[in-house]
Simulated scan of single mutants.
Amino acid sequence: MQRRQFGATLLAGAATLGFPYIARAQGKVIRVIVPFTAGSGSDEGARFYAEQIGKALGRSIVVENKPGASGLIAVRTVLAEPADGNTILLGSNSLIAVNPVMVKNLGYDPFKDLVPLHGLAISAAAFVASNDSPYRSIADVVARYKATGKPISVGNYSEGYRLVGEWLAQETDIQTTPVPYKGGAPMVTDLVGNRLDIALNDITGIAPMEKAGKLRVLAITGGTRDKLLPNVPTMKEQGYADFESYVWSSFSMKAGTPADKLKELAAAITAAQRTEAAKAYQAKRAGTFLTKALADLGEFQRAEYLRFKRVAEKANIRPS
């Protein structure tokens, strides 16, 4: 476990900013539980927001890394604590929307055991190919399959990306072969070496490689183009009107946390996203802020889960 504590501003500052309830709890440290290793992109975001929220609330915040078991260790850590508003879980599309579809005997119900607090960031995924591959668009991938009848190999390094790859097969009426990897680096190595047809990756990770001419991005899955890849069309632009999928992160808390504490914490995160520091932080990364909070965030998360569930059912994928 790795911990980092962020120093808080004066208690009076929290009350001035309009967070009196949380300010009165000054004596207890807020813990942010992260289900990923230190140094990962999600961990970095959690630490940035922990620092910003600590400044806004006048509270000390400790970030703890609890990776492993598909996020179950982190979730259990949160659920073992009182629902008093002092323990926050960093969630993601994997933890909230994908695991319930793909993991058998998950050990938690994200819609009963947890409550949504506030979104952090949201971005599209990218379909990528090597720079010397025959593919320059999704249409090229489809044409290649129809010409040869050979399934298209699609690299992934998460169950969420596996489902997006399955969705591609369903939308385009082609056959694909999912090729799982333990991380993005070995997958990209095989992609560049033309041992894969295409792969799914996050935009922030592959944008520099696209710029350097090492990879070709065929499409992204968001509703609009991304600022890091302004010349890359969306799946919608390429004729797949319903194909929209995202990678996102958000904060959740244990079910039963008092509504007033949820509202005050959510307000603090909203305020943090409006700061110049947050805007500068997000400007360097793919996507944008996920500004949904509380009930609105919960509706978004459930819709994401149901979409992945439909894709898995159509592909006859069972939890394992």
Results as ranks from 00 to 15, higher is better:
177 T>P: 03
124 A>R: 07
182 K>T: 15
320 S>M: 03
128 V>W: 12
240 Y>C: 01
292 K>P: 02
132 D>S: 05
82 P>W: 01
269 I>T: 12
115 V>R: 11
86 N>L: 14
65 N>H: 08
296 D>L: 09
265 L>P: 00
75 V>T: 13
107 G>D: 01
142 V>P: 02
204 T>W: 06
12 A>Y: 08
192 V>Q: 11
205 G>W: 04
251 F>S: 06
25 A>N: 05
283 A>E: 02
31 R>H: 11
209 M>W: 14
104 K>F: 02
271 A>S: 13
186 P>Y: 02
241 A>H: 13
206 I>F: 08
278 A>M: 08
292 K>L: 13
44 E>P: 00
21 Y>L: 14
191 L>K: 06
111 F>D: 12
142 V>F: 04
199 A>M: 08
48 F>K: 10
194 N>G: 10
84 D>S: 12
55 K>A: 12
139 A>W: 06
283 A>L: 04
249 S>I: 05
227 K>S: 10
318 R>S: 13
40 S>C: 00
170 Q>P: 09
178 P>V: 02
131 N>L: 09
317 I>H: 10
96 I>P: 07
128 V>G: 07
238 Q>D: 11
258 P>A: 15
107 G>A: 11
101 V>F: 08
282 Q>G: 00
230 P>A: 01
166 E>Y: 15
18 G>R: 10
146 K>P: 04
137 S>L: 01
257 T>Q: 12
23 A>P: 00
281 Y>H: 15
53 I>V: 15
306 L>Y: 04
89 L>D: 13
275 T>F: 07
266 A>L: 02
249 S>F: 14
96 I>Y: 05
224 T>R: 15
99 N>R: 08
38 A>Y: 10
250 S>P: 00
289 F>E: 08
313 E>W: 10
140 D>T: 10
223 G>K: 03
212 A>P: 03
36 F>V: 08
278 A>L: 13
263 K>Y: 09
69 A>L: 05
226 D>P: 07
111 F>G: 12
102 M>Q: 10
86 N>T: 13
250 S>R: 01
285 R>E: 08
166 E>R: 05
257 T>G: 03
31 R>F: 05
